[in-house]
Simulated assay, not measured.
Amino acid sequence: MHWILQENLFKENEWASLTGTLERFGIPFSVHKVVPFVGELVPPAEPKHDKVVCFGSYSMRHTARAQAWTPGVYDLFDKDFKVQLSHWGERMLNFDSRILPFKDVPSLTEPTFLRPVDDSKYFAGKVFMPGDFNDWKHKVVDLGQDHGTSLSGETLVQLCNPKTIYGEYRFWIVNGEIATRSMYKRGDKVMYASDVDERFDRFVHECVQAWQPHRAFVIDVCDTPHGMKIVEINTINAAGFYAGNVQSLVLSLEDLEGAG
């Protein structure tokens, strides 16, 4: 495939691993600036292969769709939390979430986890403190200040009580198999490590056998007092690499698209 890469998005070591792999295997790629939110490429891409894949900000999906690139972006926008819940049920960490429009979220009185129900990137899911959230909601709903994210009072969000998490792990799934994996958090501390306990592999395999949202995607899982749970899924094209094996991921995607 021809790989379209966004400049200055990945960490230095991730960039070196990605471009080094593409160069080593003679895989064509080009580097572009990406206009925020609309995903326009600067300069425009001139693919050297009939298959094109984009890696960078989520907005690149707009250009990929407009250009009818295959695979372009393995977009998960229509596989929102409600869809995930219908397939994975109590395997989901926040299966007990309430889902409602942002404007209808009541004023918080205690720390509460919120995130959009879809992979929209309107805002990052996290535990919000009451004062911070209530001020933010006033700005978005009453004053119309979305700060360029397209977040509105009608945006569907999920909210629930915070959960105790011992560790968080990212798995890159390609064609139903684990291409690579990485720890990215231990407790509240960011920690990248490629050595991941095999029991997480088994859990992820079970989840993937039950349902897959796309041919290639990222699934984040965690360890809790109630066992292993799914945190969320992400579009593989816009997910950080952490301590994952970038070469393994690249070659898995090339194999998936019949170019390996």
Rank of each mutant, 00 (worst) to 15 (best):
R24Q: 14
Q247A: 13
V221C: 12
F217W: 13
D220H: 06
L9N: 11
H32I: 06
H32D: 04
D80A: 13
W211K: 06
H2D: 02
D255E: 15
A210F: 03
A193Y: 07
G125D: 03
N94T: 01
F217M: 09
S248Y: 06
I219W: 07
N245I: 00
I219T: 08
A239Y: 07
F241S: 05
K11C: 08
A64D: 04
P28A: 04
R91M: 14
G187I: 05
D142C: 12
P130T: 02
Q145I: 14
R199D: 13
E23N: 12
S182M: 03
D135T: 14
V52P: 00
E40S: 07
M183W: 02
N234H: 09
F55V: 07
S86E: 11
R199N: 10
S59Q: 08
L76V: 04
I178S: 04
L5M: 05
Q212L: 05
K229D: 01
A259H: 13
E177D: 10
V246W: 08
T63N: 01
T109N: 05
L159H: 08
N8R: 14
S107D: 14
Q247R: 15
N134G: 09
Y58L: 15
P28C: 10
E198M: 10
S97V: 05
L100I: 10
S248D: 13
W136G: 08
T235C: 11
Q209C: 05
S107K: 10
C160H: 12
L18R: 02
A66N: 08
F171N: 01
D146H: 11
T164L: 12
M228K: 04
I165M: 00
F10G: 05
I219H: 09
W3I: 14
L114T: 06
E14R: 05
S107E: 14
D104I: 06
A216N: 03
S252T: 03
M1P: 13
P116H: 07
L253T: 09
L85Q: 14
L76E: 10
E12P: 11
Q84M: 15
D135S: 11
L100P: 00
G39Q: 04
F203N: 01
S107A: 15
E7W: 00
V53Y: 02
R24D: 08
R199T: 10
D132Q: 11
A210K: 14
L41Q: 06
V73A: 01
L85I: 05
G167Q: 10
K48F: 09
P28W: 08
R199H: 11
